[in-house]
Design a protein around this nucleic acid. Structure first.
Length: 188
DNA sequence: ATGAAGATCCGG
DNA sequence: CGGATCTTCATT
C-alpha cells in the first residue's frame, strides 16, 4: 500500500487517530511525520462540533470519509481534521502536531523565527506552516496527486485527555508519539 | 441586529 | 495571563 485510501477512515475515530501516529502527511511539497492527533465522535461527544453545530452535522452527512474538515478557531487559527464515517462510528481526527520532513524551507518562510521542531508543534501551527486554510475545507485531499498519507509504524504511542476543550475532558482520545520533540504539550 | 463561545497562539 | 479576530448559531 503506497498511500492511505478513504477505506482507512471507515473505522472508529479513535482507531484512526491512534493508527495515524507514525504515518507521513504529505501536503503540496511539504511533509511531516504525524506525532499527535485527537479523535472526536459525531455522536455522544460534547466536545465535537456535531454536538452543537448543525453545519458540522450537515458536513458529516454530505461528504465522504477522508475529506478535509477545516475551520477557523478563535478567529485566528485554521484547524485541520479528517472526516471519519461509514464504519462503526463517525467523527473526526484532528491533526495536532507533525515532525517536519520535507518542504522545511517553505515552512520556515510561513513561520519565521521558529526552530524546525516547533514549526508544526500544534494544530494551528501546522496549518500555518503547511499553508492550509479555509480554501481547503471539504477538499478530497487523499485523491490529489501532491497530497496524501503514507503508512508508517508509530513508536511508543501514548494516549491522554484531549487538550483545550471545556467538556468531555475525561475521554483519553489524544494520541502521541512518546519521544517526539514536536508535541504541542507533554503527555502526563 | 446583536451577543456569546470557541479543538489556539503569542508576547508581556 | 489577556488579546487577537472571525464564524456559526441562537436569540431579539
Amino acid at each position: 500500500m503506497e498511500r492511505l485510501t478513504p477505506e482507512f477512515f471507515k473505522r472508529t475515530p479513535v482507531d484512526c487517530a491512534r493508527d495515524l501516529i507514525g504515518c507521513t502527511f504529505e501536503w503540496r511539497g511539504c511533509s511531516g511525520r504525524i506525532v499527535e492527533t485527537e479523535a472526536y465522535a459525531a455522536e455522544g461527544d460534547p466536545a465535537c462540533h456535531t454536538f452543537f453545530r448543525p453545519g458540522a452535522r450537515r458536513f458529516v452527512a454530505d461528504h465522504p470519509a477522508g475529506h478535509a474538515y477545516v475551520y477557523l478557531n478563535y478567529g485566528v487559527h485554521w484547524l485541520f481534521n479528517i472526516l471519519v464515517k461509514d464504519g462503526p462510528m463517525a467523527g473526526f481526527v484532528l491533526f495536532r502536531a507533525l515532525e517536519p520532513l520535507a518542504g522545511i524551507e517553505a515552512m520556515r518562510v510561513r513561520r519565521p523565527g521558529r526552530p524546525d521542531h516547533e514549526l508544526c508543534a500544534g494544530p494551528g501551527k501546522l496549518t500555518r506552516a503547511l499553508g492550509i486554510d479555509g480554501g481547503h475545507h471539504a477538499e478530497s485531499f487523499l485523491s490529489l496527486p501532491d497530497c496524501g498519507i503514507r503508512p508508517g509504524p508509530g513508536a511508543g504511542i501514548l494516549s491522554g485527555p484531549r487538550i483545550g476543550i471545556s467538556v468531555a475532558k475525561d475521554f483519553p482520545w489524544r494520541f502521541g508519539e512518546a519521544n517526539s520533540r514536536s508535541l504541542s504539550q507533554k503527555f502526563k
